[in-house]
Design a protein around this nucleic acid. Sequence first.
RNA 1: GGUGGAAUGGCCGAGAGGCGAGGCAAGGGACUGCAAAUCCCUCUACACGGGUUCAAAUCCCGUUUCCACCUCCA
Length: 471
Amino acid sequence: MSSLHLYDTKSRTTSLFTPIKEGEVGIYLCGATVQAPPHIGHVRSGVNFDILRRWLTKSGYNVTFIRNVTDIDDKILHRAIHEEMPWWALAMKYERIFAEAYAALNVLPPTYEPRATGHITQMIDLMQLLIEREMAYAPGNGDVYLEVRKLESYLTLSRQKLDDLQPAADADETFKRDVRDFALWKAAKPGDPSWPTPWGPGRPGWHLECSAMAHQYLGESFDIHGGGLDLIFPHHENEIAQSEAAGYGFAQRWLHNAWVTASGEKMSKSLGNSLQVHELLKSVRGIELRWYLGSAHYRSMLEFSHESLAESATGFRRIESFLHRSVEILGTLPTPVLGNAFIDAMNDDLAVPAALASISEALRLGNSAITSGDKTVIESSANEIRGALEVLGCDPFDSAFVSGSANEDLTAALDGTIKLALSQREAARLRKDFESSDAIRDGLTALGIVIEDTAQGPRWSISRKSEGSGS
RNA sequence: GGUGGAAUGGCCGAGAGGCGAGGCAAGGGACUGCAAAUCCCUCUACACGGGUUCAAAUCCCGUUUCCACCUCCA
């Protein structure tokens, strides 16, 4: 039995995962700035870390998973003016859209999902502490800065030298002791929302909230901090700077997911609406989009194309189809079981691609067993596949994906109707009246119902058309 | 300028010194009245140039191309 090894961005190595407290894992994941609808890059991060969380839980850990919501920042304020609504209404609007996207992809709700604006008190406390420790200063203009030159270490994640950094184009050096000192707190501008502090009214800088909330929910030291690669600098460097300057141990391990790319380039809003989650969910189901996003290794770039998404969805339906057939044959839902190859793959820094290979193997064995009628192997294959899918968050029997019971009557009626047609077709086939039998099949096909003749008799399913070919 | 990442077959996508992951597509076969589904078989690769080694996609040196971050980013 292997044990979990994870990569760490700070050390740039993969090592045995040992939690601070036995049996417990604390994870802080940087969530979204809720200023626009999510594109698939945003939810890839959610899916990747959801798989990590599920694997840790499956491995027996009690996981506390924090994913924050940044509900106040420059972009939100700008966007709110553009959309002609209060900033807080805009933030809530997009927070809900993000939540819907996460739910559609079966990303489990975090243990706690703190909003930045709900933790101003903790941020002020943290700034107070930093000023007392003489690591931060309030120059009197209402801003509060962290003094980076006083840090014992800085930029250890990105391994850059302070002097090599290009100063920000808009850096205001009037009040900063060093150009690279960054704002913990920004003085209120006329018309902008603000909160009172001992240094004047203002609003939080981007980095401060994560340090404050991680401390609030996970304590001074915790196990894993995650986020997208693009957050390494400056966001995560500055979180480390703030938290270490406060005397906290902070994150023991850093995990960063790679981007979704299109035509080799990092996904961004400029690529348009077609890659927004709700657009893609018009052509594939949530479970299929999740399967696609989770299928690449979390540290590898995922090159998006509609073709590869459609291909991935087809592959998933093959697996799903086997599971449904196993239920028809065995009469019971599979019991999730983990195969050794799957366990070893997941323990190797969440090697999902290798884990998928183990599913392919089980699928092949299972399908062969259906042909040969070997129920023992059908069952063991189905169990193993379901066990794997469950960890990946793609279990088709998960209540998150099973449609509501309101449809049950309708489904039963449809099933009965189609079976009636199929019995007519079987009768025609028996008397070798293939013209009639094919007419029935063609008629059903035209309605989007696919007929397959199996050793156990004919079965039907609703065909799923994939849209979005080419571009 | 600084710091990282990437280049694998028709396509997607793993691997990190030694039996050519896996999937999709393609070709052949089995099954079938036909089809679908399924199974079996086949094909094939490590950007380029050197080097180390019994052995290199993997390590070293150099080169090319692409991508990202450098205070807005998942």
